[in-house]
Amino acid sequence: MEQFLQQVVNGISLGSIYALIALGYTMVYGIINLINFAHGDVYMIGAYIGFAAITYAKLGFFPALVITMILCAILGVVIERVAYKPLRNSTRIAVLITAIGVSLLLEYVMMFFVGAEVRSYPKVLSGEVFHLVGVVINIQQIYIVVTAIALMILLQFIVHKTKIGKAMRAVSVDQDAAQLMGIKVDSTISYTFAIGSAFAGAAGVLVGIYYNSIDPLMGIMPGLKAFIAAVFGGIGSIPGAMIGGLSIGIMETLVSGYGNSMYRDAAVFAFLIIILILKPTGLLGKNTREKV
């Protein structure tokens, strides 16, 4: 039982990380239907910006986090303006290839400048460990879970209670109609990228601190897993991304803990395929009826 509880704790902390990345993913996907492969790499860049801010500028945790979020937001907007905007009216697959190009570009530019070697993160948060009814919990795990939930609530608030959020929802339903209603589609999309990328950057810093290890290719797998989490929870749905991330984290942990750790990723994918077949729009996704 103790072991099971411990595994659930492990799963929740892992899942929160996927959820953190998936939140930004699902926003961007929700608004322009683009699998933004570069999202995982913005997360990686965020980890490096945080690293630089803490190590070289000697900043504390919160200033570093804020700077990272701002810089990542700018990066996200630049990527959107330069690489995706010219392709607004092209096929989605063309934009997807561009996203892959941007992703490779970010990875290899970073590798060129910082090298391929992993780096350890400076210690800015205490890594204190405490025991709760036989379960070991790291204080950083709590930071991650709390941050993920806080960001989710913040996003929910932005999307449902603010003007810009209303614009985002309108654009995601119908771009042309939104434009006719006087919504600035371009700037709304830019805002979405800014927010999504800022969240990715924050996730990068938190993961860097928690796992204490960053490298230029660190964004590939979590990016993919986060996308799965977003699809799993229902693309475009913010609570869905959270639930998707947590479910995948817990599932991975339980498969590793009670089954064969080597089939962990395979089990996640298999489960995803089953979910998609049973409920093609994901857990909380809205069903849209197709009209001819």
């Binding site: 072991q3 492990n10 942990t253 590793s256």
Partner: peptide, 8 residues
């Protein structure tokens, strides 16, 4: 993240 196999 190796917590799952380590817990096991």
């Amino acid at each position: 993240d190796f917590n799952a196999i380590l817990t096991k």
